[in-house]
Each structure stands twice: as structure tokens, then as C-alpha cells.
């Protein structure tokens, strides 16, 4: 019972904040609405017995990527005079496509995976995930490659973002 309540609470938080972020005209408010979505997803991860992932979600998404997006907002000018009509047209087209896909899924065979039973939750996943990352025949190579990717991303971001086009007014 409590789990069902928690599911609906997190579902309302996630979807509601995502809709708010989509529909709000002010981009700063949209970014803060995105914070609600990311925290709701962390709650989903707790419900799905993924405690390490929930912590990672809060730390990296809510703490890192969102701050990065806010910095991007502060360093760029706001976009005015959005053309509403084209926007609504695209939104209707995408939602229609999605509704068709959703309906096909709901009535078709793709959805029958839902019949699976929920298994007993493990006591904690941090230790298991750490061991999986460092076992040689499992995820060790992708783990090390991820660190190389992060280093390349760090150097690349600094290189790309440096000021190359000096403006006259500064």
C-alpha cells in the first residue's frame, strides 16, 4: 500500500515537473522544474531497490548537470518571440506519434513482459556494483574506458569553451 502511494507520488512529481518544464515560458523556471523531475526519478530508483543509482542520480544530475544548465542559462541571452504556432504544430505531431506507439505497445505483445513477478530486493547494491565494475570478465573494460571518456570530455569542454572570438565591447 505504501509502495503504491509512493509510486503515484513520484509519478506525479516526475511527470508534472517535466510538463511544467516543457510548457513554462521562462527558461529558469523550466530548469528548476527539471530539478523536481530528476529528484522524482531518484525516488523511483529507491522504489526499484537501486540505492546506489538513486544517490548517483541526486549527486550527478540534480547536483552537477542542473548546475551546468543553469550556468549555460546565465551565460546566454534569453530567446524571445518564439513562434507559438509552429511549436504547437510540432508538439501535436510528436504527441500523436507517441500516442500511436503507446497504443500499439499497450495492446500488443511487446507489453507482455509486465507479467513477470517482482523478485525479492537485495539488501544493498553498492558492494555488488563495485565488485561488478572491477571484475575482469565483467565490466572492467567499459569502466576504464568511461574514465578515459570523462577525461577527454573534460579537456574537450575546456578547449571548446575558451574565448576564441574576442568581442569589441568587452
Amino acid at each position: 500500500m505504501g509502495e503504491v502511494l509512493a509510486f503515484w507520488f513520484f509519478a506525479a512529481l516526475t511527470i508534472g515537473c517535466a510538463l511544467l518544464a516543457l510548457l513554462h515560458r521562462n527558461v529558469v523556471n523550466s530548469a528548476f522544474a527539471l530539478l523536481g523531475t530528476l529528484l522524482g526519478l531518484a525516488g523511483f530508483y529507491v522504489l526499484l531497490a537501486a540505492d546506489f543509482l538513486a544517490m548517483t542520480q541526486v549527486l550527478i544530475y540534480a547536483g552537477g548537470i542542473l548546475v551546468l544548465i543553469l550556468f549555460g542559462l546565465m551565460l546566454t541571452p534569453p530567446v524571445t518571440n518564439e513562434r507559438r504556432f509552429g511549436r504547437i504544430l510540432v508538439a501535436v505531431a510528436v504527441v500523436g506519434l507517441g500516442a500511436v506507439a503507446f497504443w500499439e505497445k499497450a495492446r500488443g505483445a511487446v507489453w507482455h513482459a509486465a507479467a513477470r513477478e517482482e523478485l525479492a530486493a537485495p539488501a544493498g547494491t553498492v558492494r555488488e556494483i563495485g565488485l561488478e565494475f572491477l571484475r575482469r570478465d565483467s565490466w572492467l573494460l567499459p569502466f576504464e574506458l568511461a574514465s578515459v571518456v570523462l577525461l577527454a570530455g573534460l579537456v574537450g569542454a575546456v578547449y571548446i569553451a575558451r574565448r576564441r572570438f574576442p568581442r569589441e565591447d568587452v
Binding site: 544530475y61 550556468f71 571518456v149 570530455g153 569542454a157 575546456v158 571548446i160 569553451a161
Partner: peptide, 11 residues
């Protein structure tokens, strides 16, 4: 990868 992507994309 999303973290790396966000940093590069904002740059």
C-alpha cells in the same frame, strides 16, 4: 556519458 555530453554540449 550524460555528464560528459552536458559539459561538451554547453561548451
Amino acid at each position: 556519458l550524460a555528464a560528459a555530453e552536458a559539459a561538451i554540449a554547453l561548451a
